[in-house]
Every structure is written in structure tokens, then in C-alpha cells.
Design a binder for these strands. Structure first.
Lengths: 175, 175
DNA sequence: AGAATTACGTCAGCCATGTTGACATATTAT
DNA sequence: ATAATATGTCAACATGGCTGACGTAATTCT
């Protein structure tokens, strides 16, 4: 399989302690995320969906009446890219859109029961992996990991994200 | 502390505690990884490279004389996908290939000095974010985060990855 | 009221990067 | 000698990003 060789020297003579790259976490993030996102693939395949659909469905499901602009801000993609997958999700009855109450230009997105079901199935699959990982690590790992990951997020977004992660359907506008 | 409150709706009446998805970590992983990988984009753009080039260069740089098959196993992509980006990296002098000593069919990949320089620049940029995140979190976060992420990796690969990540310059052969 | 801005959608095309399948070449193993 | 292996390559296709341009309805500004 992967007979892998690693080496230690990568830091030249004058390199500062602060400049020594943390290869360990760089690589662990890569491998962990690689396997984490692939977790849902089989489920998605049953519906002819890809990872883009997963992301959209997830955040819509978690934030009922999410506005399109907010979703774009979360995903950091263009409206054209979003448009394609969102249209498929709406056409196939996983997501529905309603008119904004105060502002009728807005489309408020929410998952249908069918959409909720799929979103939940996907979340449960990914959560199984997380649960296993947390159990394999020591106590307090959950808090430490959450803190670390939250601190990895761009500070401009961390406010929104904090709100988003902890209190869904709380439409926070930014700056 | 990551004061996070999971939403209680979304879990039907009969749902087991074990089936309550960990939305917090699912979303933190998404946001953290999103910003983590985007970190290197500006640097890569200077060379007309994308994230695929980054991944290839990173693992080749970290594992001199890496075999093509090993690289494919790390990245979990097809040789055709690898071929394109690898060719560009070789053509432009960031990676060079030599004949395998014991098996002359193999191509042993390693970064050139130019390649090492770029790989290091990219790693340092990503490590700055990691360093900041660790400093913002409590002591012991580093170990906890590493443990958690390692445990998130598919068990079939975790052996390889463990070798890869933590024991540089160790010509480990397995299975 | 009229003009400007905003929220959203859409058409068209391009690019990066993944996929499958088939086939070629050299080298090594049986 | 034959088979298996390591790698490369051609061709076609899918997914999911992107930019640019333009349209429409609704809201806001003056």
C-alpha cells in the first residue's frame, strides 16, 4: 500500500522557530477532511447529487428561511454556481423558497420534509465519524477541537459563523 | 470555551442520543477547512497553480523519492488526474523524477530547490493560521486537536498517515 | 414621482480538477 | 516466454468553480 517515507529536514539554518511549519496539523487537516467529506458520497449518489448539493442542503436545513445572499456568504461561491445546484434541489423537492415577508425581493429558503430527511441522514453519517473520533481521543477533546477549529476561521467571518453554528435560523447580517 | 448550543428540533421523537448529529463540529470543520485551504491561494496564483498543484508539491516535498503509486494513495485521485498537474510541476522545474534504484519502472519524485522554496512558503502561510488558532485556544489544544483529527481518518489509512505525519525520514515499509 | 440601488435569476462560456476506459511501454516476477 | 506491475497517455465526460452581461421586480433615495 502506501510505503511512505518522511523526512525531517525542511527548515534551513536561519529559520526562526515561528517559521517552522506545523506539518503535522497541516497534513492531519488534509486527511481528516478528505475522509470526512467523502463520508456522505454514497448517500448523495443515490440521489444523483454531489458535494455542492450537500453543502447547500445542509445550511438551508440548519437555517430555515435562509436568504440567498446569506447562503452565498456562507459558501463563498458565486450566485451562478449556487444557482445550478439550488435549482436542482428546488426542482426535486428538497428545498422550497418563499417570498420575504418584509422584503419581497428576497427568497427565503428552507428544506422540505424530504429535504430534512436527507440532510439528517447525511449529518448522522458524518456525526458517526466524529463520535468515533471523539471517543478515541481523551475527554475534553470535544471542547479543544471545537475551539481550535473555530479559531482557524477567518476573523471577519467568525462572528457570523459563531451565530450560525450555535443558533440556526438567526439571520445575522454582517457589517 | 466553545459555547455551543445544539438545536433540538431536527431530532424526531424516537431519535437516539447516538443519532443526534454533531452540527457544531460538522460546521466548524467546513468553515475551518474552507479558510485553511484558501490561505495559500494568492501564493499559488503567482505561479498559475491551483490547489491540486499545492497538494502534489506538498507531499512530494515532504517525502523525497516518493513513488507515484504512493502519491496516488495519499491523494486518492486517479493517475490521470495526477498526471496533468504533476507534468506541469515537472515541466516548470518544481519537481524532478529519478529512476527507482531497485525497480527501474518506478519514478521517484522529489522537489527541486525551487520546489522546496515554494512548498515552504505555502506551509509557512498555513502554519501561521494554525499557530494563531492554537494560541487563541488553551494549552493542550494542540495535542487534542491532533488526536481528534487523526482519529477522523479512515482506519485503513491511519497507519500510513501516522507514519507520514509524525515520523519524518523514516523509510517505513508496511504490509 | 422618478431615479438609483438592491436581491435575485439567467444565459453563455471558460477553467480546474475530478472521473472512466482503453491502450502503450518498460521492467520485473513467475 | 509469459504474466503481472509501474507508469504514461489519449480521449471523452462530469462537477463545480469562475467572469461578464443582462433582465426583472422591489425597495430606497432624492
Amino acid at each position: 500500500m502506501a510505503d511512505v517515507i518522511l523526512r525531517s529536514t525542511n527548515v534551513e539554518a536561519g529559520a526562526h522557530r515561528a517559521d517552522v511549519p506545523n506539518f503535522e496539523l497541516i497534513e492531519l487537516l488534509f486527511f481528516a477532511y478528505r475522509d470526512f467529506v467523502s463520508e456522505a458520497d454514497e448517500v448523495l449518489e443515490r440521489f444523483g447529487f454531489g458535494r455542492a448539493h450537500h453543502r447547500v442542503l445542509h445550511f438551508v436545513s440548519r437555517n430555515p428561511d435562509l436568504k440567498v445572499a446569506e447562503l452565498l456568504n456562507i459558501l463563498k461561491i458565486t450566485k451562478q454556481s449556487l444557482g445550478r445546484v439550488l435549482r436542482e434541489l428546488v426542482d426535486q423537492g428538497f428545498i422550497e423558497a418563499s417570498e420575504g415577508s418584509s422584503d419581497r425581493r428576497q427568497r427565503l429558503l428552507r428544506a422540505t420534509p424530504k429535504g430534512e430527511e436527507l440532510a439528517l441522514e447525511l449529518s448522522i453519517a458524518q456525526s458517526r465519524r466524529i463520535k468515533r473520533a471523539l471517543e478515541a481521543s481523551g475527554p475534553g477533546t470535544h471542547e479543544a477541537a471545537a475551539k481550535f477549529l473555530a479559531a482557524m476561521i477567518n476573523p471577519e467571518d467568525s462572528g457570523d459563523v459563531a451565530k450560525l453554528v450555535r443558533s440556526p435560523s438567526m439571520t445575522g447580517r454582517r457589517r
